[in-house]
Amino acid sequence: MDTLNNFFLIALPYIALALFLVGSIFRYTRKGFQVSSLSSQFLEGRRLFYGSVPFHWGVFFLFFGHLTAFLFPKGVLAWNSQPVRLMILEITAFIFGISMLIGLVNLMVRRYTTPRLKPVTNKMDLIIYLLLIAQTFFGLWIAYNFRWGSSWFSTLLAPYLYSIFKFQPDTTAVSLLPWAVKIHIIGAFLIIALVPFSRLIHFLVYPLNYLWRPYQQVRWNWGRRRIRAPRTPWSVQRPKNN
């Protein structure tokens, strides 16, 4: 039991994080052409709405929910100290979870019943669908059966995750958790490990800098004023674009 625990709760997280970091950086810097959301809306634009929208908004809120509980466990506990606020938090999270599950199922059904999507579907897509569906399902299962997740996440899981990041893994508390929670943890690290090897990588390139960049972009291959200045040395300059 201990070996298993050690493998899944200590070794797997480190392997996953290493793969995630090295793989993503490699793919982003060396294989930029292969970093894309691979949208299939162009081939099927109607049913996508009922899958993509609920899934993405669901995953968006749940991701940041988990992140908040990890980063500010005390804050979450303080918020939860009043039952009404706890209920609001739990119910909202649950609704987003359901939305995510519905979205995923819709996406998967759409992908496998639309002939035009076959040429743009690969095996990794299937693995990701199954993994995400299982992960969402267990998430909902845990939220329903082991209440209240937001509170015990902050007290039990946040310290465990911190211990991982501090390179002093401490699994005493998590190893006692129910098997469903352990599966959820393992699933999470598996998903992280697969980011650089699947289309999931696109979430890393969400174009936030669009917010502050000017609308128009003009690029010069040479410093256009400098080039005519008599003292500019005559040298070949590598372009920055492409």
């Binding site: 800098n209 609308y215 972009q217 003009v218 690029r219 010069w220 040479w222 256009r224 674009n241």
Partner: peptide, 14 residues
């Protein structure tokens, strides 16, 4: 160019 969220599209100055 203006609509591209990733900033992948640009106009060459020259």
């Amino acid at each position: 160019v203006a609509s591209c969220p990733s900033g992948a599209i640009y106009k060459r100055g020259e």
